[in-house]
């Protein structure tokens, strides 16, 4: 019996490639670094007041008489879908200065890790949409674990620019809306506005920024700070091969069809 193949998640044997594989593996357990109370999370998202009931788009699926559908049997609904929650969003901006995630890898990770989401990738930010209670569950992981750095990652529903700007004197990513500040006494980043830059009644701390060496060690970006671009040879071999196959296959599929073994 042949051994079950393991998925080849990302090419390369350097530490950036290794970290990218860790991010993209849906089984990965991310290290929890901080505690964001549920009420604070709700405040940051700004979709409902803390303690307020979830609004719904439709009655609970259990109460609905739905037509026969084999797919429904195969795919159980998420908790938010079962309750008929509204679809809500969270958006993260990732600094080029080694935010633990980058938009492209957020998109790929969201797709393999979180059910019932939609996502869109921009050059500096990533939007996730999901049923409200699912969104809160996923957001919790995204904020409380090593996937978030209070200084280099930010929650921004609007006015998202800043990812490529220099950092401020405290090492924080620029935010034209000034949703957060660095509390020097506590050494923590504190949000005073929610993701849509609406002032909150209660400030929310998202914890201490990670040290530079930790960010660099966990960076998923190639470059002069980490692994030089030119050294990621296996990655460029793989991309070059895919590129060539796409050109040839687009012209004539026979050029890239696998030969049958005799």
């Amino acid at each position: 019996m042949t051994e079950k193949p393991s998925p080849n998640l990302y090419p390369g044997d350097d530490r950036v490639a290794e970290r990218r594989r860790f991010i993209l593996d849906p089984k990965s357990k991310f290290e929890k670094l901080r505690e964001i109370p549920d009420e604070d999370l709700v405040r940051l998202l700004g979709h409902r007041a803390p303690g307020e009931k979830y609004s719904s788009l439709h009655p609970s699926l259990d109460e609905l008489k739905l037509p026969e559908d084999p797919i429904r049997e195969l795919v159980p609904p998420t908790d938010g879908a079962r309750h008929g929650d509204r679809i809500r969003y969270i958006q993260f901006t990732d600094s080029v200065y080694h935010s633990p995630l980058t938009p492209i890898f957020r998109g790929r990770m969201y797709h393999v890790r979180y059910r019932g989401i939609d996502t869109i990738t921009y050059s500096g930010r990533e939007l996730m949409e999901a049923r409200e209670r699912d969104l809160e569950k996923y957001s919790k992981e995204l904020l409380e674990t090593e996937l978030f750095d209070p200084a280099r990652t930010a929650i921004r529903g609007i006015t998202v620019h800043g990812s490529a700007l220099r950092l401020d004197e405290n090492g924080l990513m620029f935010d034209a809306r000034r949703r957060y500040y660095f509390d020097k006494e506590r050494g923590e980043v504190v949000y005073t506005k929610d993701q849509m830059a609406v002032p909150m009644d209660t400030p929310v701390s998202v914890g201490k920024p990670l040290p530079e060496d930790v960010l660099l060690k966990k960076s998923i970006v190639y470059g002069l700070d980490t692994i030089p671009y030119r050294e990621a040879k296996e990655l460029w071999e793989v991309t070059g091969r895919i590129f060539e196959m796409h050109v040839k296959g687009g012209l004539d599929p026979k050029l890239v069809e696998k030969k049958e073994k005799p």
């Binding site: 990218r20 938009p103 492209i104 998109g107 050059s123 998923i220």
Partner: peptide, 23 residues
């Protein structure tokens, strides 16, 4: 792949389509 981020809205669909259609 170098930076894990792309261009305008990361809109690389035009690039993938164009590569396949190029020839």
């Amino acid at each position: 792949e170098a930076w894990g981020r792309a261009g305008f809205g990361s809109g690389d669909s035009v690039d993938h389509i164009s590569i396949a259609y190029a020839a």
